[in-house]
Write a protein that binds this DNA or RNA. Structure first.
Lengths: 195, 195
DNA sequence: GTCTATATCATGATAGAC
DNA sequence: GTCTATCATGATATAGAC
């Protein structure tokens, strides 16, 4: 969200950051545009000037975050050879991100976008999720993963880890997620691995 | 939700059914109390008489559904001996329920209750989820499930199946969930089983 | 591009007759 | 217990000066 930041972009980023924090803390519908402006020290007029309406703001946030995540996954794919290593790196990254930036994780995979962005496809159809499914498909082709419906395989592989994330966001887990990574990943991989 | 239904309860059930349908279709915040009254053919006054306020209505719905589900799980526990059979029966039940009553499933495990019921604990703390964790704990004691943090085990066991449910609710899966039960369960159980 | 002030409107909730 | 009519609030969004 923060790049070269010509003055032009500064306001936008201020607003997006405030919106992310408030959406996570109180939810989209419990957050008014006034709240966002107050928190970002930006006037309502500016917000509407930049984003058109409240949904436009949410949309901008959503695509910025998923684009960034897709890019991260792409990098991890290039850094690791096997499907096993790639998928594990993705889970590790998601766990780290949950601790370092809970609101990002919360908004990206826990918020019910359908309710405030009716035209946006569901999260599981977003770019990052598609990349993860594709990763599984390749692992099946290479023989690392048992042959089955790829949709089932990818849901079973990532389902556990993803629920660990939501459990952590709900404060159900006492310790930071990376502490649970080894055990979680062992279970996840056993679920679908050939060996 | 429908028992003996003295006239006293008839209005309540009418309202709860309409609310469930609308909350699922448009979300809690996009549904007005007027909408609910219109759909249930009941006046606003009656709704407030019975439920106090909009959140009270949601609370009544939430506890009715989780109570019912907890009861179903209890029955399944009694009908099956091993942890494996119990847990599989629970997943089968959840899959069936997702097809026969999508709104029930949707409201129970997909809605973001925190946003409209701030005082209610998160879903994963509800009775049914607690029962499922306890089931896993027993399976670990009896040696069916590998020794590990019980919270991780239960998340890994049920994480895949639960994500299958949300995928189906998001219309990502073309066929009815029970068609996927065998493969999903095989993966889920392998994730945590000792053998 | 940013601001303040304001229009408009829908919603949650209540009053009070029957 | 159910209804209709109404209130009061607070939200989204706009207008128009700077």
């Amino acid at each position: 969200m923060t790049t070269i930041s010509p003055q032009r972009e500064v306001t936008r980023d201020l607003v997006l950051d405030a919106a992310l924090a408030l959406f996570t803390e109180k939810g989209y519908f419990n957050t008014s545009v006034h709240d966002i402006g107050r928190k970002a020290h930006v006037s309502i007029g500016s917000i509407y000037h930049h984003f058109g309406d409240k949904a436009g703001l949410a949309r901008a946030l959503y695509s910025a975050l998923t684009a960034h995540m897709a890019q991260r996954i792409g990098t991890l794919e290039r850094q690791h050879g096997s499907c096993h290593d790639q998928a594990r790196a993705v889970v590790a990254e998601l766990f780290d991100l949950t601790e370092s930036a809970p609101p990002v994780m919360n908004f990206m995979l826990y918020a019910r976008h359908r309710e405030f962005l009716p035209d946006e496809p569901p999260v599981c159809s977003s770019r990052p999720f598609a990349m993860m499914r594709e990763m599984v498909r390749r692992g099946m082709a290479s023989g690392e993963i048992r042959r089955m419906d790829p949709l089932i395989a990818s849901t079973c592989l990532f389902g556990g880890p993803l629920r660990m994330i939501t459990a952590r966001l709900d404060a159900l887990l006492p310790r930071p997620l990376p502490d649970y990574l080894d055990d979680t990943w062992t279970c996840a991989w056993r679920a679908v691995a050939t060996s």
